[in-house]
């Protein structure tokens, strides 16, 4: 469970997020909003990549300010551009990198990597250069690289923005099927219809919050 209590974030003189209090308990939560509304800042608060100027963010009762490393061991983060997330030359090596802090034996590590590759249908790409894959394949590798660590919560910051419609739907279907809690920041509201809850962020505040059947139509009306 993630709990934000009176959280504000400022950058120079500009308020990015303004006094946000919210509990995130549902299995699949979507976050939508215009460019510059504060969505990505909101996402980065959830695993302690960014600390609030005011207020607290707690993940399973761990404060991101005091226990950032422990929080990040529980909260995986998928970035918009997989090229920024994939750091090792081959797919299998990149997945193994995420397991470094887990101090597994070589055999345990190989097993965990091969199970994860299989789960995301990436086994045939294990020894391929991650740098040369297609955009859709790279995002799957980035997702597998996060999920190999078995996080309790996954935060995705616009994971489909750089993908075509087919790959976007595929990635979102896989994300939606994950057993862990999933929080997806996206512009593609059509992927959130099966989610449990959708937050709308506007001007640094949560302007709407509820089931997707109610919030998404209201959000789309504001765009019309």
């Amino acid at each position: 469970m993630i709990e934000l209590e009176q959280v504000s974030v400022r950058f120079h003189d500009r308020t990015i997020l303004d006094n946000i209090s919210v509990s995130l308990t549902e299995h699949r939560i979507g976050v939508v909003g215009d460019n510059g509304s504060g969505k990505s800042t909101f996402a980065r608060l959830l695993n302690g990549l960014l600390l609030p100027d005011l207020g607290t963010v707690e993940v399973n009762n761990l404060d991101t300010r005091d226990d950032g490393k422990d929080v990040r061991s529980q909260v995986g983060f998928l970035f918009q551009n997989p090229d920024n997330q994939i750091v090792m030359p081959t797919v299998a090596e990149d997945l193994a990198l995420g397991l470094k802090p887990h101090k597994l034996t070589g055999a345990e590590q190989s097993h965990r990597v091969s199970v994860t590759l299989d789960r995301f249908s990436l086994t045939h790409l294990a020894d391929r250069s991650a740098h040369l894959l297609s955009g859709g394949e790279k995002q799957l590798v980035a997702l597998a690289g996060v999920m190999v660590t078995q996080p309790q919560i996954l935060v995705c910051d616009e994971p489909t923005t750089l993908l075509d419609r087919r790959n976007a739907a595929h990635v979102m279907r896989l994300i939606g099927e994950l057993p862990c809690q999933v929080i997806v920041i996206t512009h593609h509201v059509e992927h959130l219809n099966d989610f449990d809850r959708v937050l709308v962020i506007a001007d640094g505040r949560i302007s709407d919050d509820g089931p997707p059947g109610e919030t998404i139509p209201r959000y789309l009306e504001t765009l019309a």
């Binding site: 695993n47 997330q85 470094k100 802090p101 101090k103």
Partner: peptide, 21 residues
């Protein structure tokens, strides 16, 4: 800018926990 994002991604992937667990 890529270096900034990369360092953020490395922290998200546990780079800051390599020597502590």
């Amino acid at each position: 800018r890529q270096a900034d994002v990369l360092s953020e991604a490395l922290i998200a992937r546990g780079f800051d926990r390599w020597d502590t667990q």
